[in-house]
């Protein structure tokens, strides 16, 4: 082979190796089309993205308020997934606490006595919305005019919000995340849901959600980096009055959802013991 053929071959090999290792890294693949600062980081304070006359709430999100890692020796302890504060107790900021029906108050106390070992999440069951907003895992909102889909990392789950004007069902299937319809009121997405299973947990306390629940989410995106969900639960079977809490999520960029299939190697349930 002539001398310049070798050079050409080496050049091709060199460049293909370079692009192969640097650009093809999936884990921190840059999110296209987002507002960025001069240094390349996402501009979280940029104005609300819009599409088709409404805010665009699409993107990857994660619960905003996290419990601090309890590790006493920060440099050496194994790093834990940060636990959203709402996951511990969704009603932590609710003045007066939750307005339980008597049986529901008793149930929550029993669940605490059993150390939450009956939590469906501990048995790898689905991440049910609205609880799914505040698991440690990421969720991705995909927005189209007639349908919004939310993908959740835990067990590669999904939830649909129908935006095509259809009514709520009269005899719904008992869904883990209910059956949801939505419409825009100005810049707020109003989502109404019913048709929940009768035995759902709203957090690690085991605050219940029953088949009689009607859940309203008022979702807004005040700027590029923030998602606010005003959550109202109207569940007369479990609670004596509707109650409302505010959930917040932060946008996640330059990475991707990772699959977390809980049953693939679950080993703890067999070790559960009640004292």
């Amino acid at each position: 082979m002539k001398h310049y053929h070798y050079l050409l071959l080496l050049s091709i090999l060199f460049f293909s190796l370079c692009t192969g290792t640097a650009v093809a890294q999936w884990f921190d693949y840059p999110t296209p089309g987002i507002p960025r600062n001069a240094n390349g980081s996402a501009d979280l304070d940029a104005p609300t993205p819009r599409v088709g006359g409404t805010p665009n709430i699409g993107g990857i999100w994660v619960a905003a308020e996290l419990l601090k890692d309890q590790c006493p020796d920060r440099d050496n302890c194994i790093t834990q997934m940060d636990l959203p504060a709402d996951q511990r107790d969704v009603a932590r900021n609710l003045e007066g606490g939750l307005p339980y029906q008597p049986w529901a108050a008793k149930l929550v106390a029993e669940r605490a006595a059993r150390r939450s070992m009956d939590d469906p999440h501990a048995r790898c069951l689905p991440p049910n919305f609205p609880r799914a907003y505040y698991f440690p895992q990421y969720y991705k909102i995909v927005q189209t005019p007639d349908l919004i889909v939310i993908l959740h990392e835990f067990n590669a789950s999904y939830r649909q919000i129908f935006m095509d004007g259809r009514p709520l069902p009269e005899d719904p299937f008992p869904y883990w995340s209910g059956y949801s319809i939505g419409h825009w009121e100005g810049d707020t997405l109003v989502v109404e849901s019913l048709g929940y299973r009768d035995d759902l947990w709203l957090d690690m306390q085991g605050n219940p959600l029953t088949e009689e629940a009607r859940v309203t989410e008022r979702i807004s995106r005040p700027d590029f980096g923030s998602l606010q969900i005003e959550l109202t639960v109207d569940d007369p079977k479990a609670y004596t009055a509707p109650w409302t809490v505010l959930l917040q999520s932060n946008v996640v960029v330059d990475t991707e959802l990772i699959e977390e299939i809980c049953l693939e190697n679950e080993q703890d349930v067999q070790l559960f013991e009640v004292e």
């Binding site: 006493p72 050496n76 834990q80």
Partner: peptide, 20 residues
């Protein structure tokens, strides 16, 4: 050192399932 610190703080740890 790690053992000493963890022994003092373990009850506050949020993530470990006390059931197992």
């Amino acid at each position: 050192l790690i053992k000493a610190v963890i022994l003092m703080a373990v009850p506050a740890w949020a993530h470990h399932s006390p059931a197992a």
